[in-house]
């Protein structure tokens, strides 16, 4: 377990900014004590410093997880967000999409979102911006990348893809073993 290097921090934050933009500050300066990002086995964990210090007792190979896992660095040093980060992404999200109940199930099985399944979309979502997907009763379902901007969405066919699937809470069941 070690802090992120400068390079890693840059890659990681670049990714995070796509989803929560300026709100990234809120994650770092928190009113309830200092929080930090820690790297263990290529995974990035977001955890309060108090807990992080106590976890220092645990040997690296025995440490499985601490706090919240945000994602992992791939072998080619790109960063992949995991669905486990959803708890921190959802409240600060900038782009949001709401799915109709019929499309909910589709998305939870790992499919992209069609225009026909789109219930609502927040204003000013750019193309290829990260969006958080909600069900119509505001349950965060996962996140993805907008395939079209808000204005393009209005004029597209029902069959066109409006959001590329990246991660969804169905993974808790589908791929429990590879979650982190």
């Amino acid at each position: 377990m070690r802090p992120l290097t400068e390079e890693e921090t840059r890659i990681f934050f670049e990714k995070l900014v796509k989803y929560i933009g300026e709100n990234i500050k809120i994650l770092i300066d928190r009113p309830d004590g200092p929080y930090c990002f820690r790297l263990n086995k290529e995974r990035v964990f977001y955890v309060s410093e108090e807990i992080m210090k106590k976890a220092g007792n645990v040997a690296r190979e025995n440490l499985v997880s601490l706090g919240t896992c945000m994602g992992k660095f791939t072998k080619s040093k790109k960063f992949r967000l995991h669905v486990t980060a959803l708890d921190y992404l959802a409240p600060y999200a900038q782009g949001k999409m709401w799915l109709k109940p019929s499309a909910e199930q589709q998305f939870l099985y790992g499919h992209n979102v069609m225009k026909s399944g789109l219930g609502r979309i927040s204003e000013s979502v750019d193309r290829y911006q990260g969006v958080i997907l909600y069900s119509m009763n505001d349950l965060p379902l996962g996140f993805g990348t907008a395939a079209k901007s808000t204005s393009d969405c209005r004029h597209s066919d029902p069959g066109t893809i409006v959001c590329f699937h990246q991660s969804d809470i169905g993974e808790y069941i589908r791929s429990e073993d590879t979650l982190t």
Partner: peptide, 22 residues
């Protein structure tokens, strides 16, 4: 079995945990 811990802890929104395997 510890892997199932990771999934469940994150799903349930537990943030004060340290999961270890001793």
């Amino acid at each position: 079995r510890a892997k199932s811990l990771i999934g469940n802890f994150h799903r349930m929104g537990v943030k004060n945990s340290v999961i270890c395997s001793y």
